[in-house]
Each structure stands twice: as C-alpha cells, then as structure tokens.
Design a binder for these strands. Structure first.
Length: 110
DNA sequence: ACGCTGACGTAAC
DNA sequence: AGTTACGCCAGCG
C-alpha cells in the first residue's frame, strides 16, 4: 500500500485482466493517459509482488514477450502461469498475442 | 540532494 | 529494416 496513485491505478487495471487474456505495459499506461510512461508501468509491476491478486504474468510488453519473467520467483514461473490459463508461450513470446490481447482502453473505456 | 537505473514504447537516424 | 536516443515516474546508491 501507500504506493503512488499511478501504481494503484496500474494494479487496478492489471487485476481487471480476464483469465486467459494478456495486456501490455503500454496499453495500461495509455489507459491511464500516460502512454509515454510505460516504463513506469513495468516498474509498478515490480512492486506488484507485494500485492496479492496482481497477475503480473498477464502483462507483457508490446511485442508479447515475457520481458519480466526473470523478476518472478523463477524465470519459468511466468510462462507456466500463462500456460495454465490456456495461453501458449513459445520462446518467451505469447502465441496469438494480438488475439489474446486485452486492451483496457478498449474494454474499460466508456 | 543529485543522478543512474529499470518488467516499455515511439521517434529518429 | 535494424540500431540508437529520448521520455516518463519512482526507487535506490
């Protein structure tokens, strides 16, 4: 807790990601209105480990690559979690990423 | 208090 | 088309 509002907003969106779906840091940043701060979104995910209910494994980069897998308990943890949800991961890249992509600005925006 | 770094993304060369 | 540079925000040395 006590994270900046930016972090909280990021966590909020990540928690809303449906199972079996993925999103990108930039998409979250864009939803928050600061698409240029996509870096900070990823940084927020780094702090998400302290908060339960944050499926950080569902958040990948714009390329669909599991860039943050190394920050998990184990490097394969992220890929395994994704596969458990039905998301196929090959070479650290989400298969059919664009089809599994869940854009908050597209689903949450009014 | 200042500066570098980092789970990204876009623009420029 | 591949590589380099910059912006953004927060944490840490």
């Amino acid at each position: 807790m006590q994270q900046s509002d930016f972090f909280q907003s990021v966590f909020q969106v990540v928690k809303l990601i449906p199972k079996g779906r993925v999103t990108s840091y930039g998409a979250i940043a864009a939803y928050l209105g600061t698409k240029k701060s996509s870096r900070t979104v990823g940084y927020a995910m780094n702090a998400s480990h302290a908060i339960p209910g944050i499926p950080a494994h569902r958040v990948v980069n714009r390329n669909g690559m599991l860039t943050g897998k190394m920050h998990f308990d184990t490097p394969y943890r992220m890929q395994e979690l994704l596969e458990l949800e039905g998301i196929k991961v090959e070479k650290d890249v989400v298969v059919e990423f664009k089809e599994l992509f869940w854009d908050p600005t597209l689903e949450l925006e009014l």
